[in-house]
């Protein structure tokens, strides 16, 4: 039993081996002496030899355990690195996805803009060319001195009708262009400052008071008065306005009085939670995941362009750096939850 002796030139248990050798020699020298003494020293030598063997065994076992532990540790480090890399890839993939999604929604927007603008401009154009034709015809009659009262009256009616249509459709186009511009708001277009959220909400609701009063709706505001934000009051005001206008246009049949509600909580981690809800008709299951899409409207033809909630979505996820969701709720009506940092990014 002298492992290590050959390779490194020394044995870990060199000293112990020498003592064992010494013990053997001692026993040899004592072999003719007192047998009682001999046997007792023999027992001691045996015990020591066993103890050294035990030590060797323990060192070996413990080395092996430490080895395994080291390997496990290395494995752990490797796995962790792998996991972190995978996470990073995932993050990148997600970013790409978000970018693609943005591009796609931009594409949809541009397509929608073209389509939406086309209708009023097309109508205005055909009205204008109709007016042009009629004017040429009446001028021909006039120059030939062949114009009758009937002809002139008919022309006047045509001119009045087409002019009205042209004005209406140009106004519609101008309105559309205005809201498209809003879709593209960026954070620079709206002034950043610190403001008391309760004030901004109250001011916004006041500015909508005429519309609200006419319909007979009530608005309940519940917002901590000491909640001060650093961000874009104009953006919040715009978002609230769009919500309220939607409640007015989509929420209630004429004559029904609604209860609109704005509730604000300052949550943990400096997160503001703003809930806007009404108790109107609500949004049907099939429409729920489309309402934030640009041009999704259930009121096409009667003034809806389907941009209101898309603008809300862009404002909340953009300048406010937060999220907006349509909540599932048992109560009737529609309820939107906004969450955004108290200090805008």
């Amino acid at each position: 039993m002298s492992e290590g002796n050959s390779k490194g030139g020394f044995s870990l248990f060199d000293a112990e081996e020498r003592i064992l050798d010494g013990a053997k020699r001692l026993l040899d020298r004592m072999k003719d002496g007192d047998p009682q003494l001999l046997s007792e020293v023999g027992i001691l030598a045996d015990a020591y030899s066993r103890s050294v063997r035990e030590q060797r065994r323990l060192v070996k076992v413990s080395d092996r355990l430490q080895n395994q532990m080291t390997q496990l540790n290395q494995e752990l480090v490797r796995r962790r690195a792998e996991a972190e890399e995978a996470l990073e890839q995932l993050r990148q993939a997600q970013e790409t996805l978000v970018q693609t999604e943005k591009l796609a929604s931009l594409g949809a927007l541009v397509g929608g803009v073209a389509h939406e603008i086309n209708t009023p401009v097309g109508i205005a154009l055909s009205c204008a060319s109709h007016l042009d034709d009629s004017t040429k015809a009446i001028r021909a009659l006039f120059e030939a001195d062949d114009i009758g009262v009937d002809d002139f009256e008919r022309y006047m009616d045509t001119a009045a009708d087409t002019a009205k249509l042209i004005v209406a459709n140009c106004e519609r186009a101008a309105d559309l262009i205005r809201s498209f511009k809003q879709v593209a708001v960026d954070r620079t277009s709206s002034e950043r400052r610190t403001f008391r959220l309760a004030d901004t909400i109250a001011e916004t609701v006041t500015s909508l008071r005429p519309n609200l009063r006419q319909a007979g709706h009530q608005v309940a505001i519940n917002c901590p008065t000491d909640l001060v934000l650093d961000g874009y009051p104009g953006v919040i005001s715009q978002v609230l306005t769009n919500f309220v206008m939607n409640s007015l246009t989509h929420g209630y049949e004429t004559g029904r009085r609604g209860h609109l509600r704005v509730q604000v909580e300052a949550g943990a981690d400096d997160l503001v939670r703003l809930r806007y809800s009404d108790d109107g008709q609500g949004i049907s299951e099939e429409h729920r995941n489309r309402i934030f899409d640009p041009f999704f409207t259930t009121r096409r033809g009667s003034g809806g362009s389907g941009l209101g909630l898309h603008i809300v979505f862009n404002l909340v996820t953009g300048p406010l750096g937060g999220t907006v969701v349509l909540e599932n709720q048992d109560a009737p009506g529609a309820s939107f939850l906004l969450e955004f940092p108290r200090i805008a990014p």
């Binding site: 290590g4 390779k7 490194g8 030139g9 020394f10 044995s11 870990l12 080395d63 430490q66 080291t70």
Partner: peptide, 15 residues
């Protein structure tokens, strides 16, 4: 220090 063979690491030092 957790070599396979401690004597290989410490042998030269001992010498």
């Amino acid at each position: 220090s957790y070599p396979e063979d401690a004597s290989q690491v410490f042998g030269p030092i001992f010498n």
